[in-house]
Nucleic acid binder design. Structure first.
Lengths: 222, 222
DNA sequence: ACACTACGACATATCAGACAAGCAGACAAG
DNA sequence: CTTGTCTGCTTGTCTGATATGTCGTAGTGT
């Protein structure tokens, strides 16, 4: 041991238990021995064992049901999106973004409140004002797109959008730096039309415009 | 929510604590009040408070040092999909599925190989043969939908689809059990038409049909 | 023979109390 | 100024008691 950081009994117990779970000692969805059994197996008190279980429950590896027992919900924590996306082809990321934003545009056309509409309006104006600097352009563009997803009133879509945003931003920044001009009037006009479609509640038009815009973006980035 | 799994005190306490952390009540690296103080603030016993802290420690939000106290290590928690979806409204899940599958249908129409096409064909036939038993019907339906996403050649979309599948399957099974008839000929015909559109490379039609089908599904499940 | 009910063994949930172990600041001695 | 000790506070761990939920099963009624 190089580090002097003593591991608490609860942490040690959680580690041992996780190892046994990964070794396949119990199926996913399977039931573990009770707290008292596990505690005596590992030679710790019941409350310590409970804290070890909570440690793994926080990672969604275990779950408990009063009266029933302790159950395995996963053998491992699903890989964080960040690392998945970092490896992924940027074209694949844009494809996923297309899926999300097209649906979000359709929902937003139906559900947007007036407050959200004015936030979109502001974001769009801001986007029009910051087209010179690459970083600002990418940031204000992302802010507008996000305001559309917010107006869709779908927490899952928003979560997905936020997950893709960093990788998407990175790719856009890289692409725009390699070009002389960016953020021309035509590009801004496309966004204006998307806004108009959502504002007028025309979900069909919003879908078509959003898809066209993102398809074009994909061909530029890919 | 059909099954209202009562949230334990420890989970409630962890949720409240997380909300206060996210609200910025303490800096990252900052020290929280002691266990006893927090326990009395939230009106729970010390052991329960400790378990709440362990839940957050498992997510790397908190860390404890014997003799020193409880410290914030991060405010940002990339919440695991499983737990997000378990809580999420089924309508929101279908919305996300719509986003993914509509885009997948469009991509599949452009990219499907003949091998993938025949797998879709097989899955569709299988779906037609298992319409009596609810479990089998839901399973074969899911298999067909998945074969479409596979044909889209987008690893991220496939990953997302698989993530939504369990929650979606659960909701569909529950809904169908409450009905006398399901999987009628019209339903199967809709899937046939989606297949035809993808087979003939008509992405526009695939998009329209897929969206219509999933929108109808959402209104049934919601 | 079948469906329903009641009950009890068992499991987790929660609390209270006690003692051990570790940390950090105060403070006195060198 | 440095060092050593003291002390109060905090987390770590265990025990035991009570509350509450789950599930198989024996018994009951039809």
């Amino acid at each position: 041991m190089t580090t002097v950081h003593r591991e608490s009994l609860a942490e040690q117990a959680a580690g041992l238990l996780l190892a046994r779970i990964r070794a396949g000692e119990w199926e996913i969805g399977g039931r573990l021995p009770g707290e008292t059994t596990l505690a005596s197996q590992l030679g710790v008190g019941r409350s310590t064992m409970r804290e070890a279980i909570r440690l793994l429950a926080g990672r969604d590896v275990l779950s408990t049901r009063q009266g029933a027992g302790v159950f395995v919900t996963a053998t491992d924590v699903p890989e964080a999106w960040g690392s998945v996306l970092r490896r992924a082809d940027i074209a694949a990321v844009i494809e996923a973004r297309t899926a999300i934003e097209v649906e979000a545009a359709a929902l937003a056309a139906d559900r947007r409140t007036s407050a959200e509409l004015s936030r979109m309006r502001d974001a769009l104006a801001e986007r029009g004002r910051h087209r010179a600097d690459v970083d600002e352009h990418v940031a204000t563009d992302a802010a507008f797109h996000r305001s559309v997803v917010v107006a869709a009133h779908s927490p899952i879509l928003l979560e997905l959008f936020d997950g893709f945003e960093p990788r998407s931003r990175q790719a856009m920044t890289e692409m725009l730096r390699g070009r002389e001009q960016h953020g021309d009037d035509a590009d801004q006009a496309v966004h204006e039309r998307i806004y108009d479609a959502i504002a007028s509640g025309d979900s069909q038009a919003a879908v078509t415009l959003a898809r066209a815009h993102l398809t074009a973006l994909r061909s530029m980035l890919g």
